[in-house]
Amino acid sequence: MMRSDPRALQLNEQGQLKHFLTLDGLSKDILTEILDRAESFLSMGEQSVKKVPLLRGKTVVNLFFENSTRTRTTFELAAKRLSADVINLNIATSATSKGESLLDTLQNLEAMQSDMFVVRHQDSGAPHFIAENCTPNVAIINAGDGRHAHPTQAMLDMLTIRRHKGQFEGLKVAIVGDILHSRVARSELHALKTLGVDDVRLVGPKTLVPEYFRDMGATICHDLKVGLDDVDVVVMLRLQKERMAGALLPSESEFYRLYGLTEETLAWAKPDAIVMHPGPINRGVEISSEVADSDRAVILDQVTNGIAVRMAVMSMAMSGQMQEQQAAGDED
């Protein structure tokens, strides 16, 4: 099957988002627009009716081929706060287990006149495949695919950084832990670089920090002290035990001893450095309870910001889709 460049696939002719598949190739302007829109959705929290009518009458289907309670819940809340109707499909336990193919499932959902699919899949490139091969009029949002990307997670981290630090220029950011299995790290690096952060350090053991990240502009550190030295932002990643096949790590306690974030190791960073974590956190594996519960940790802000960022991305992609269909209608 033909596969086009995902970077071109997600923009319409006016250069607006119509899918949201990857941050790779998105301009600083688009990333900034996502953050600005998200910022105005955040202020909606003051409304007694926490809803805007933007996507009223649109149907959003959460297609989760892989479980993720937090991501699914925040996407569902985001869609509902935009007044869309939401269906959650846990594909792992439904039709595909009866032998229906992915394309058949999707064509059925399309026939139900869905307007947007939020896709989480264990295979890299699955949302891209869906955007390309099934449904031209449905906006596809990537909610995490394999080791490839998790663009809304990266953008909610960017929003959290911007709200705490004000701007991106001149910041030093360390991403610590299981970089190899992390789709967050990859998306995060794209976002930080595009928004103007020069000093991004990926920190972890040799087995979990692949060398090829150097080509994407990151510094690689195998020593936590060097990695955390004078940073403004620490992003801890979860040790993905379920993806860990073979002997990549001697043991969890060994990992914690070398790379765990504790009050002692956090002291190497700037005094006002913030600590982020995409969750769920493994206390005592990558981060100590003292740090996770301290006011340096902005982990719960990330969750709140995640809803706003998802609202921004969903409304922008839906807008881009409708613009494109409008243009196609005008040509007929």
């Binding site: 805007v52 933007l54 807008s319 881009g320 409708m322 409008q326």
Partner: peptide
């Protein structure tokens, strides 16, 4: 009023 306009379907965001 950006999020409350009645022309989202026609004009987008």
């Amino acid at each position: 009023i950006t999020f409350y306009r009645d022309d989202f379907t026609r004009a987008g965001l």
